[in-house]
Design a protein around this nucleic acid. Sequence first.
DNA 1: GGGAGATGATTAACATGTTAAATGAAATGG
DNA 2: CCATTTCATTTAACATGTTAATCATCTCCC
Lengths: 190, 190
Amino acid sequence: MGLKTPARDGAANRTSESASAAGRKMSAGQAPMREFSRSLPMSLMRAREAVMRHFRPSLRAHGLTEQQWRILRALSSIDAIEVTDLAHVAFLLGPSLSRILRDLEGRRLIERKTVKSDLRRGTVSITAKGLKLIEAVAPHSEAIYAEMTRRYGAQKLAELQDMLHMLENSLLAMPVRGGSGDADEGDDGK
Amino acid sequence: MGLKTPARDGAANRTSESASAAGRKMSAGQAPMREFSRSLPMSLMRAREAVMRHFRPSLRAHGLTEQQWRILRALSSIDAIEVTDLAHVAFLLGPSLSRILRDLEGRRLIERKTVKSDLRRGTVSITAKGLKLIEAVAPHSEAIYAEMTRRYGAQKLAELQDMLHMLENSLLAMPVRGGSGDADEGDDGK
DNA sequence: GGGAGATGATTAACATGTTAAATGAAATGG
DNA sequence: CCATTTCATTTAACATGTTAATCATCTCCC
């Protein structure tokens, strides 16, 4: 399952209170490092959790986890898709996908076939039962999405999406230092 | 551990290609539902993954997972903090935190004490060894963050942060339908 | 053809996410 | 005071995330 609402408010601001105690042992010239709660990964994670918090009750009421929903959702708009491609679309790793597909197949929400021309590959498609489940959940989801849009502002939401995609593209174009990247392992002058 | 780079590019656009096949069994008036890959949760997840991808190699090289880093990072700027508060700050659930603290304590990166006035509560603080580890990792992280800022644009990044926080606040103020929320369980007219 | 290496999918093993339940200690109310 | 309830933390149990290894198939090249 995905996040469920790890934690929130509370004494989360204790940090700033005792921020004066920061860097107590940091040697002289060290910048005290970015305020933790304002780091980009944390902001993105909290934002996503704030969003998902509203969708999970409906999903759960229909016996679906976040990941299962992503899979069915991706399958709902196509006829069939190969496992690897599904992993990309639903943003899941192979092993997780493998396990979840096994479960969804057991529940007759999806079907699998092996590609005749290449027996290593398998394709996945949603069943009528799976589509029915989607049709049952979708209206709730769309209503929630609509309410979110109303509260945050449609234009601001679109702008946020654009900025997120631009960020994603900027960072995908940035070489990963220390990672077994495709290239650019240049000077690790640290 | 956190995400590790579940999947990316590839045939991720197969969706839009065969989008014509969408809603094949959707009964008449049904809107075909939001394009999956453009959903806000997916955008946020992909953006976060694009960010974390750059930080993980450095963390891993120092023997730290994303969650362990969040904990040490949160502890580094305060003298001590109670377990529950740490869960809020590091955005972890109690059980996960419990396990991770056990491990970090075993590695002498943190220390724990029980509060004398309330034996149920425990406080956590970072050790000298833990601080040393942070000092070793921090320069790498800051350098990566700086490069990200340079590529995406400092102003745009600040604006994105603001928009994320506004989104978070908007959605925290929005009642959760079907969740065992504090109130507003009004009409579930579905 | 046939073997070496590449590829797609699954399995294995362990860390974390997630919910429920258990444990131990403190507050509360008779 | 003591029983009940509440609270902080941990444990239990299972799903998922993550990396490495396995297995079967396929490709390429000799």
